[in-house]
Design a binder for these strands. Sequence first.
DNA 1: TTGGTTGCAAAATGTTTGCATGACC
DNA 2: GGTCATGCAAACATTTTGCAACCAA
Lengths: 151, 151
Amino acid sequence: MSCKIHPETVERQMERNWPEGIKKTKQRLEIYHILADAIKPLTATEIFEELKNEDGSPRYAFSTVYRCLQTFENAGILTKSTAVTSENAMYELRLAQHRHYAICLKCKERFPLRTCFLGDLKNMLPANMDEFQITGHQLEIYGYCPKCNQK
Amino acid sequence: MSCKIHPETVERQMERNWPEGIKKTKQRLEIYHILADAIKPLTATEIFEELKNEDGSPRYAFSTVYRCLQTFENAGILTKSTAVTSENAMYELRLAQHRHYAICLKCKERFPLRTCFLGDLKNMLPANMDEFQITGHQLEIYGYCPKCNQK
DNA sequence: TTGGTTGCAAAATGTTTGCATGACC
DNA sequence: GGTCATGCAAACATTTTGCAACCAA
């Protein structure tokens, strides 16, 4: 269970963000909250774990998690991506600003980078590709974090 | 089977590149060639397909492909990565220069970008992360290529 | 010869799907 | 009440592993 500093803000954000025609079931609401509280993209498994009871018994089906994430993605409020350093898909709410991360290859911790400096993506396109319509980009830095580096 | 423009160059490159203590089996040599000829990162399945006979029957085991790729990666001559736009791992020889790609979300084609402009990665690290030891990075641009964009 | 490599099959993921039951609007 | 979402189990795809047979050095 994560520590919510401004629970009411999450509620309002959700109110604004919630897609048309998507039913608010308790499963979806809980998953939204977990994503909203997260400071980094989560895997489906991490979300599933977060949803468990104290005794470790699952409260919802795994397929529900996947289907919910898929629904959010189709509705455009969620971004699915796969990191270089992990096999599994990761999910992150698509809020106003997007983030990039520095990822430690040892402890797998993800550190959000400062602002995205990639203003001039167009220039990086290959020749004869001026017509390429850019809809997104992804950047990852990897290496070893200060903690793991010392050992 | 892909068209080799300078077959002898690949041979020499392989000679230089081949890691110490790794036996040159025909499976590994063939897989190396496929990777060397590729103009984009390949999935294990793509490599496996490339290795098939004309009649579509597999010449080698799938596990051999995976084990070979793993061997190359451990030896440091291969980079394994997962693209935002695909679930599966992709493999690319780690040659002198590395590449980034613009990826079409529709046809999945990968267009190599011009040079990597990311000289100043250090500046993008979060506060208190000066000690983060950067060993690599990845950048992807995605959107729609000219061909798919027109439709 | 001998230890590393392969092939096969089976296991271990991670993810998706079909169908009956159940819950939101 | 009707439609859409859920749970369960089973299917699926990708990747990994155990073990006997095999081959490069």
